[in-house]
């Protein structure tokens, strides 16, 4: 059997499959379904400084081969994540977890990362820069190289753990933003976050989602994700975590060929709660089919 292990920013993963933030909660509820220790790791629910309810409902719209969500970073806030959610996770998960962090100001990000930094079980920070910057006119941090770099520098100051910046695809030049984060001290880049989308109900003649727009994810966006992972992975010298519509072992391998060191699975978890377990179980078969001995050998094999 081929080897599935990969090294992500200095930490060894048994396999490259990682449930994406926002599709796996804080993990422990999935442990009722299967042993979540089969995962490479997982990225927990986006955590902010203060508790957030998120957006009004409806928050979900269906699309061809995908969905739009406008949950709005619902989470209990960093204090409760540390005191209530993570202890429940550690009872069932014995690997390092990826802490997904969001903020609405540079200070927010630094505050939340600093609080979480003392938690031993956290292996990596995944910093979501797709949120609007309330002090910067509401533009997303992830749309401007300088703003993304500023967030990176701020969190770099408060942790020695690997920092992975999660980029938005809703930009004109993702490579310049990835490079700015690398220069500012990021240890890795993950992409793509959701594509901004919208659906309208013909019957009511109003947007399906209360927030009007939301993040489009699912198999429909996979080709966009592969393209952006390819572009970024070939422009930076730090590991890239690929995501966007990944739903099968074949998709995982395609992402890795494009340049991903590890691969996150998002929307697929919501349709099939066993998606990640099934993908991991299927990887050896697909590796054998395509003559892959070690998954780590194929990272960025497409030049």
């Amino acid at each position: 059997m081929g080897k599935m292990n990969v090294n992500l920013c200095g930490i060894e993963l048994d396999n490259p499959v990682i449930p994406a933030s926002g599709t796996f909660g804080f993990g422990y509820e999935f442990d009722e379904l299967y042993d979540i220790n089969v995962l490479g790791t997982f990225s927990f629910k986006g955590t902010t400084k203060d508790p957030r309810f998120g957006n009004p409902t409806p928050r979900i719209a269906e699309c061809t081969e995908g969905m739009i969500n406008a949950v709005g970073l619902q989470n209990p806030g960093v204090e409760k994540v540390i005191s209530e959610e993570l202890p429940k996770l550690y009872k069932v998960f014995n690997k390092k977890v990826m802490a997904n962090v969001s903020g609405f100001s540079v200070e927010d990000y630094a505050y939340t990362v600093e609080k979480l930094d003392s938690v031993d079980e956290i292996g990596w920070f995944e910093v979501n820069v797709s949120c609007p910057n309330v002090h910067g006119g509401g533009m997303s941090f992830g749309t401007q190289p300088e703003a993304a770099a500023e967030v990176t520098r701020a969190v770099r100051k408060v942790t020695k753990k690997p920092i992975i910046i999660k980029l938005s695809p809703n930009v004109t030049d993702i490579v310049s933003i990835a490079k700015a984060c690398e220069e500012a001290g990021a240890d890795g880049i993950s992409l793509i976050n959701t594509l901004l989308g919208m659906r309208i109900d013909l019957r009511t003649k109003r947007p399906v989602i209360a927030n009007k727009m939301g993040g489009f994810s699912g198999p429909a966006i996979f080709p966009v994700a592969v393209r952006m992972v390819y572009q970024v992975a070939h422009a930076v010298n730090i590991p890239v975590v690929g995501m966007g519509g990944v739903s099968s072992a074949e998709n995982v391998i395609e992402m890795m060929l494009a340049g991903a060191t590890a691969v996150e699975v998002g929307a697929a978890n919501l349709v099939n709660p066993y998606a990640c377990r099934d993908i991991i179980a299927d990887l050896p078969r697909v590796m054998a089919k395509y003559g892959i001995e070690n998954l780590s050998d194929i990272i960025g094999a497409v030049k």
């Binding site: 796996f24 509820e29 399906v208």
Partner: peptide
């Protein structure tokens, strides 16, 4: 009733506010 994403508590798509805190309609 609420429009759901997953239906089993993972996505927070169907959350509502209650007297006893936020609840997921599906879970």
């Amino acid at each position: 009733e609420e429009r759901m994403g997953c239906g089993f508590g993972a996505c927070m798509g169907c959350s509502c506010k209650t007297v006893t805190g936020y609840k997921r309609i599906c879970k």
